[in-house]
């Protein structure tokens, strides 16, 4: 039987789908009987997406304008 600690150690492999069927079965059994781990999995799974949204950036317009200017100065038409 997996403990909570075992299960949480394996979350990355589990979500990557890189476990043996045997391991995956043990893990699913643990989740099914352990509410805390089930919620832990749900929050672990949500973490990356929430971080991605919190860390999103857009290029400022003046930086974008400078980028265009820079590339045009470096790139000469072939003709």
């Amino acid at each position: 039987m997996y403990t909570c600690k075992d299960s949480i150690n394996l979350l990355l492999e589990y979500l990557d789908g890189e476990m043996t069927p045997e391991e995956a079965r043990h893990l699913k059994e643990h989740f099914a009987g352990c509410r805390p781990c089930e919620e832990f999995l749900s929050t672990y799974r949500a973490t990356s997406g929430m971080c991605k949204r919190a860390l999103a950036q857009r290029i400022p317009q003046e930086v974008s304008a400078k980028l265009t200017e820079f590339l045009r100065s470096k790139i000469k038409p072939a003709s």
Partner: peptide, 8 residues
Amino acid sequence: RGTLADYP
């Protein structure tokens, strides 16, 4: 015992 001490 390897059980989660606190949980969500």
